[in-house]
Computed example of a mutant assay.
Amino acid sequence: MRQRARTYRRRGAGIVAVTLATLSAAVLTACDSSSQQGGRPGSASSRPTPSPSPTPPWDRTPRSLAAVGDSITRGFDACSLFTDCPEVSWATGTDTRVNSLALRLLGPAGAAARSWNHARSGADVADLPAQMALAAAHKPELVTVMVGANDACADTMERMTPVETFRASFEASMSRLRKDAPKAQVYVSSVPDLKRLWSTGRADPVGSQIWKLGICASMLGEAEDDSLSAQQRRDAVRQRIVAYNEVLEDVCAEDDRCRYDGGAVFDYRFSGQQLSRWDWFHPSRDGQERLAEIAYRNVTAAKPPAGRPAGQADGGAR
């Protein structure tokens, strides 16, 4: 019996020793895990959490550029009457006085080899998807967009592009670019304030005569008419442009690689020196230079410009 008791005591001691060793190892493992994860064993803070997908950073030094849009980007009426002058384009021009966005970003050699202008005089937003396809074929690192003036510049107010149609065309343009050039960045310029251009050019006898040829009749037609109906017409055209700019801002905001100018071009007060001396409507060389400055400042800024809250645009010139 004594021998059997001694045997049980030895077995019991062994079991206790193994149990203590197991518990010690478990405690050490838990402490080690806690120290590595910065939290207590079993706490919620010790559990790893997935990191959110990072937003692609904006490249402030793109190495190629394609431009789409209308006559402003083609430099229309900046060099001679009723003629495109792409060498003074704010986006891709080679004129050193204008110092286009392409020249500022790429230098003369880079601008000549790696910038393309697919804008077309007379184009409206319905033409933009096809232009985007041409631009995307180059696989540019940056695409500039300036469109919408011709959508507001109709023969009559009723023929202005409806806002929802404008949105659909711009969304289709962005989709086409993303399909063919998914990594391209996009800089979107706001539509200029055409009412301010009317206010600036209406006093010039040459400009007012040129306008009678049919340039932007919805805004510039009967430029000297100050009747209530004429004022209401101009205000309605201006509000349509404000709505277009809201669309450009909204659609751009849905794309991680798109930057809207915050209404900078719409807000810019073009003087007579910055308007074409042939039509007092399109930018002159000086006006193209101002557009290039605005674009370069916004493209190279660390953060995108803050946009004007919807519906808060000022009343414009009268």
Score class of each variant (00 low, 15 high):
Glu158Ile: 08
Thr144Arg: 02
Lys179Thr: 15
Val147Ala: 00
Thr161Trp: 03
Gly122Ser: 13
Pro182Val: 11
Ala168Arg: 10
Val147Ile: 15
Val163Gln: 08
Tyr187Lys: 09
Val191Lys: 03
Ala149Trp: 00
Val147Leu: 11
Ala168Trp: 03
Phe170Gln: 01
Arg176Leu: 12
Ser175Ile: 12
Pro140Arg: 03
Val147Asp: 01
Arg167Val: 10
Ser190Lys: 02
Asp180His: 11
Ser169Glu: 14
Asp151Lys: 01
Arg176Gln: 14
Thr165Ala: 14
Ala130Pro: 00
Pro129Leu: 06
Met132Gly: 08
Glu164Met: 11
Val188Gln: 00
Ala126Ile: 10
Ala184Trp: 00
Leu142His: 01
Lys139Val: 07
Ser175Gly: 13
Pro129Cys: 08
Arg167Ile: 11
Gly148Ser: 10
Ser175Asn: 14
Val163Pro: 02
Lys139Thr: 12
Ala136Lys: 00
Ser121Phe: 05
Ala149Glu: 05
Ser173Thr: 07
Ala126Glu: 12
Leu134Ala: 14
Gln131Glu: 07
Pro162Val: 03
His138Asp: 14
Ser173Lys: 03
Asp180Trp: 05
Ala123Ile: 12
Ala154Cys: 05
Met174Trp: 00
Ser175Thr: 15
Gln131Gly: 06
Ala172Glu: 10
Met160Asp: 04
Asn150Cys: 12
Ala135Val: 07
Ala123Met: 13
Val143Leu: 04
Thr156Trp: 10
Val163Ala: 12
Val186Lys: 00
Ser169Lys: 13
Gly148Arg: 05
Glu164Gln: 15
Met132Leu: 14
Ser189Asp: 11
Asp155Leu: 09
Lys179Gly: 12
Val186Phe: 00
Ser121Trp: 01
Ala181Cys: 10
Arg178Tyr: 00
Ala123Phe: 09
Leu177Pro: 01
Thr165Tyr: 02
Arg178Ala: 01
Ala126Gln: 11
Arg178Lys: 09
